[in-house]
Design a protein around this nucleic acid. Structure first.
Lengths: 148, 148
DNA sequence: CATTGTACTAAAATCCATTTTCATATAGGA
DNA sequence: TCCTATATGAAAATGGATTTTAGTACAATG
């Protein structure tokens, strides 16, 4: 079973539990994002979707993305206006992304310690953290090896 | 002395030391960003600049921004495509931003420990971090107090 | 089976971000 | 003072992100 299909099954059951609709379009958009190693941009998605779904328009994609993000199934990569599948949708808290500048591959981490430290440090300055955006850009193992 | 004028002086001397030109436009753009508590977007800057500098066009702003970012005088806020003045330009390393979702105020932190931890953890997974984007969204002290 | 809320179609506009190109001006070094 | 690199002016195009509006389809619920 591929990782993408596992994610789709998880998504399916989560949506069912929550009583929200995991429609074909939403499923397909998530699938496309999951199959792609790195971030996909809205118009990349629209292009892909258009080939099999002629009615697709920008709102089609943006609605699907909004839904998927609300459900915690997709993350927006702020530093590049793109979207990745959430690696473990059951994990509700903060996450960190490793983004390879060479191959575009994105890995999701859950360094809860760090998240907690950041929240605590902010709190000590009177700031109440509600959301964290942590994106680390650099070179992944493979691209480092390849560039030697 | 206001904080903005201190920053301008620092910027001035740093540019002098580095042998790069701190032109009137660059100075003014930095000043506008510094005077604003939070992030300013490119077109906000263009609007402001236009009122006193009729020739201002998008490239005028983008060139100034590019320069200021290269010189470490301005940071781009990835999560909102906006720009803030760097609070301590002499500090070369990573930074973290606290961004109030209510008033837009932005505070810059330099939690070098956290930066180092993140880099180390990434490294242990074979990933070499070159740049960190850390933005914490939430409520600042004032806005928390006000909303009680 | 009727109602109601949610999702989707359809078309377009808008807004925003950014780049391109080429000409002109100007500051600092030779 | 001249030369050259850098900065700016000027006009426009491009590319991408996102929203708006209004109508239609459809699924779950009672």
């Amino acid at each position: 079973m591929t990782q993408a299909s596992t994610l789709l099954q998880q998504a399916e059951s989560q949506c069912h539990i929550r009583g929200v609709r995991f429609t074909p379009i939403r499923r397909r958009v998530l699938e496309m994002i999951a199959e792609n190693g790195g971030g996909l941009k809205a118009y990349d998605l629209l292009d892909k979707l258009s080939t099999e779904h002629a009615a697709a328009r920008p709102p089609t994609v943006y609605r699907a993305l909004e839904f998927l993000i609300d459900q915690g199934l997709v993350h927006r990569i702020e530093s590049q206006n793109s979207y990745v599948a959430c690696a473990c949708p059951e994990h509700a808290h903060g996450f960190q992304l490793l983004i390879c500048r060479h191959c575009g591959y994105v890995e999701e981490l859950h360094l809860d310690e760090i998240s907690a430290q950041l929240a605590a440090l902010a709190k000590s300055r009177g700031f109440n953290v509600e959301r964290q955006t942590i994106e680390l850009q650099g070179l992944c193992q493979d691209c480092r090896t390849a560039s030697e």
